[in-house]
Amino acid sequence: MNWLTSWIPKIRSERSESVPDDLWHKCNKCEEMIFRSHMVDNMWVCTICDHHERMRAHHRLVSFFGSESNFKTEIPPRLQDDPINFSDTVSYKSRLKKARAKCDMDDCFEIGVGKLEGNSVVALAMDFAFIGGSMGRALGNAIVHAAEISIRNKIPLVLFSSSGGARMQEGIFSLMQMARTTIAVKKVKDAGIPYISVLCDPTTGGVQASFAMLGTVTLAEPGALVGFAGKRVIQQTIGEELPKDFQSSEFQFKNGFVDKIVHRSKIALEINRIINILK
């Protein structure tokens, strides 16, 4: 061992301690490197190209309500995992365990009840980082729970969708969540309470084809992927190239399925406006 081999590990370990992995964030669109803290301050909107990055559920609620102290987290009744005992290359149970450890949450959502400048609302944010934000029994239950809070307290319901669709690992149980969530939001609307659906990147498959498209008012974040069938499936079926803005928020707006495309920094403001007009 010479002086060089004894020094290299030291240099390495010092570097890894002094430079945290997540100091920088690389924008998924313009690929510029941006200080992570700047991204957090800017609600995960790229400070250079204005691209709306996917946002973790907790960050979403904090930025929506303005601060951590402005809302209270609600936890729906917990269900047993893995209803059909599913296993592909890995078991669903171990997928869940891994996702829970990675994301530090129980499933792909967080519910917050709080105030937007005086107006109480219940908001549910979905988290794409947790198994693609996919809808299984847990999410179905969370939406039913959030809807119940909304009806009980007569406060508007806000759902931020970010999901690839239904959770295949729960088989038919995930399909039935389309029915459950549709009924849940319908009850809110029947009670004369506004339900505001915010389509975030991505809102596709079974989530788009159920509660996400049924808002009293439907908003969308700029540039989000919003559609029913996967692009690859469509391409394979029709065998031709898809238009450039296909299945974007802008595409949905153009075709009449979204009321307004709203920048992330203005979402709380716009929702508050809607509530004030309706109250």
Partner: peptide, 26 residues
């Protein structure tokens, strides 16, 4: 399944399926 195509997306396949669910439930 519901047809995956350009026109079906333009005409809101997801929305229409959701509406069908809502109407059936109601």
């Amino acid at each position: 399944g519901a047809y995956p195509g350009i026109i079906s997306e333009e005409r809101g396949q997801g929305y229409v399926l959701a509406k069908c669910l809502e109407l059936s439930s109601d």
